[in-house]
């Protein structure tokens, strides 16, 4: 919650939109606010952004019952043609949020340094199994007393080989580590389609 998921999505769209055909599905908890933030900031044309309503449970809509999200993805493809990358953002509600493999090919889990530097140590499905763990707002670490080295060590202990990206979106090109990871994943899929 408040870790910068929507800001990350916006930054990714800006970084990748010139090279890839992109779309975004947001899963808000009780408003269309995330979708509207992306629309207001014009990170993509409006027909490439859609919101799914989740009945107070975004984690249900991305994991247990993915119907509405699958439908949203289909509608986006109908509207704008083939897409290279669809970012499905979940509303922030808990550390156990995981995306169904029926909905996504890869999951990025975003936490921030201000939420407590013990989150990687505590683990949980998001931290442990996400294909990429993002630790955001590194610029705030000195102000909230978070130990980035400790977070990196704990993340490695939980995740083994799985990658971790430390980001500060206020920095120039701050989303670069995530954008590079996305490009690498896409290149791998293109080379060896599932």
């Amino acid at each position: 919650m408040g870790s910068g998921k929507t800001a990350t999505v916006a930054a990714l769209c800006r970084a990748l939109r010139d090279q890839l055909s992109l779309a975004v599905v947001t899963n808000d908890i009780y408003t269309r606010e995330d979708a509207e933030f992306l629309l207001r900031n014009a990170v993509l044309p409006p027909e490439r952004i859609t919101a799914v309503e989740t009945g107070a449970c975004p984690h249900t809509a991305i994991r247990d019952d993915i119907s509405a999200n699958l439908e949203a993805v289909e509608e986006l493809e109908e509207a704008v043609g083939p897409l290279d990358l669809i970012l499905v953002e979940s509303g922030g509600d808990n550390l156990t949020a995981t995306f169904s493999k029926g909905l996504v090919d890869a999951q990025v889990f975003v936490i921030d340094v201000a939420g407590g530097d013990d989150i990687p140590r505590k683990g949980g499905p998001g931290v442990t199994t996400a294909d990429l763990l993002v630790v955001n707002k590194t610029d705030l670490a000195p102000y909230v007393g978070s130990d980035l080295a400790r977070m990196a060590r704990d993340a490695e202990a939980q995740r083994g080989e799985l990658p971790v990206a430390f980001t500060s979106l206020v920095a120039e090109d701050g989303v670069r580590p995530i954008a590079d990871w996305v490009r690498a994943r896409l290149a791998a899929w293109t080379a060896a389609p599932a």
């Binding site: 799914v52 309503e53 989740t54 449970c57 809509a61 247990d64 019952d65």
Partner: peptide, 11 residues
């Protein structure tokens, strides 16, 4: 109620 047909988002 857990049959995954989208009903959970409707009241």
């Amino acid at each position: 109620g857990r049959f995954p047909a989208g009903g959970h988002a409707h009241s």
